[in-house]
Design a protein around this nucleic acid. Structure first.
Lengths: 116, 116
DNA sequence: TTGACATATTCCCATATGGGAATACAATTG
DNA sequence: CAATTGTATTCCCATATGGGAATATGTCAA
């Protein structure tokens, strides 16, 4: 069995770095035409269109026509899924950071102890 | 060019649903032996080992030996990356929810207006 | 050492990928 | 209508994937 389709999931869709770039640009600039993405991100137009296609299939972006342009817009609620999933592990990484901080502080105390 | 390697990124690593399951189980149960994952998740052992290999390469888990077992543990700080990335778009999805809420409230007002 | 158990690795395969190039389609303008 | 511009689609290709089966490696126990 091959890897799951990039269009099967938000998680699979955002695995591609270029698609994350597109998402970031849409977040910054609102509704953006394909040509603007092409220019700003410096990728060939077919590549941009294909990536937008993937993002659209998983609901991460929506399109609207304006003249001969297509304006793509971020549908950020799909990203909330990712956020919420990762957030489930928040306590785990903060515990971990705590342990690191504690070790650092202990070392600092020991240093002071040695030098005094 | 094929898709980016699953081991190139945390984002690519968590694209696979089975690997997310593994992560979730490690989060719940702490240090877990491979055999426990095999039993609980009901996947063949080689599959589990391979997925753990990917997770290890991107730093999402760490291993320790205990007798003939390997205990895998979640390294959640790598997930903070994902969390933080998604969080950048928080205002976007909350705005979106606001708009939905506003529309709903407006409809409700109009309903009341009609029936009174 | 031999055997039993836990885990990792290898090999084979069907499949979807992302890139590039070319082309199709769509909308606007003259 | 034809020409132009903006975007989507198609075709070809090299490649990594995840699954399954088999096997290798590692570690303990008798």
């Amino acid at each position: 069995m091959p890897r799951a389709a990039t269009t099967s999931d938000v998680f699979n869709a955002i695995a591609e770095p270029r698609r994350r770039q597109i998402i970031e640009m849409l977040a910054r600039r609102g509704a953006v035409a394909v040509s603007a993405l092409v220019v700003t991100l410096g990728m060939p137009q077919p590549a941009v269109s294909k990536h937008l296609g993937v993002l659209r299939k998983v609901g991460l972006v929506s399109v609207s026509k304006q003249g001969q342009q297509r304006l793509y817009e971020l549908e950020a609620k799909e990203l909330k899924l990712v956020h919420d999933w990762a957030k489930k592990f928040e306590q785990h990484w903060s515990h971990h950071l705590d342990r690191i901080k504690q070790r650092a502080e202990r070392r600092a105390r020991e240093q002071r102890g040695l030098s005094n």
